[in-house]
Design a protein around this nucleic acid. Structure first.
Lengths: 126, 126
DNA sequence: TAACTGTGCTATCACAGATATTACAGTTAT
DNA sequence: ATAACTGTAATATCTGTGATAGCACAGTTA
């Protein structure tokens, strides 16, 4: 599943897992109806307690990203809507911009950072 | 001191206080050698325990923003360097940009947000 | 001396995250 | 039916952190 947990982060593990899955769906790596690893398998793979995995999955289910069936497994939802995550991302982006502005950062500096991360228009990543 | 605490926020109170003071210094509202409210005064004004205020001040002192003298009070440091805070702000900005990119947000959309927050070049705030 | 300052320490409480364990119920293949 | 998987649920425990309360002590100032 290519999920990396940063134990030093203040972000809870269950949220890190949620985010990784959401991003995988966003990238198209996880497609609708595709089966996720079982709770116990992911628990073993990540060395994270099954209850923590369960929490991630339960919240993702509440948010309509996945659905789970007892006895079968967990699957990517047919129409996994990511709009709310994009909105949340834009909100935190806005907060970051406001904070930088308050600290006197020039807007051109922010533009440059975006330019560097997105690339010059070609297909470079990260 | 014009410090507003959001008790619903997940950001600890002592960090909110730190941030407010740092931003006040950044805005020039708090000038070098200017005295801060006493621990007990701020504690009473904000209805926050003195230990919590103390933690904010201690960390700010560790970070070179303020200095405290027993019996006298706490003061803005002579050369309060905010560079590390600007760097931290830019780091979190970068994270926000990367996250938005991963979610497929167009870079022009981010540029628009910056444009709206910074204004069109005139002097509007927030 | 009195009234302020900051400092230090201990103790307590509440909450959240994470873990461990056990048990139960649904699905699938043999 | 059985075995081996799935998810679900509940309880208990441990831990770290944030926040509070209270006390004592030391430096400063008028």
């Amino acid at each position: 599943m290519n999920i990396f947990i940063d134990y030093r982060s203040r972000v809870p593990i269950y949220e890190q897992i949620k985010k990784e899955i959401i991003l995988a769906v966003s990238r198209g790596e996880l497609k609708p109806e595709e089966q996720l690893p079982s709770l116990r398998a992911l628990s073993a793979e990540l060395s994270v307690n099954i209850n923590t995995i369960k929490r991630s999955f339960s919240e993702l289910e509440d948010e309509g990203i996945i659905y789970s069936v007892a006895g079968k497994g967990s699957f990517i939802s047919d129409r996994a809507e990511l709009d709310s995550y994009v909105e949340a991302s834009l909100r935190s982006f806005s907060e970051a911009v406001k904070n930088a502005k308050k600290l006197g950062v020039d807007k051109e500096e922010l533009a440059t950072i975006i330019f560097n991360i997105y690339g010059d228009g070609s297909d470079k990543n990260d």
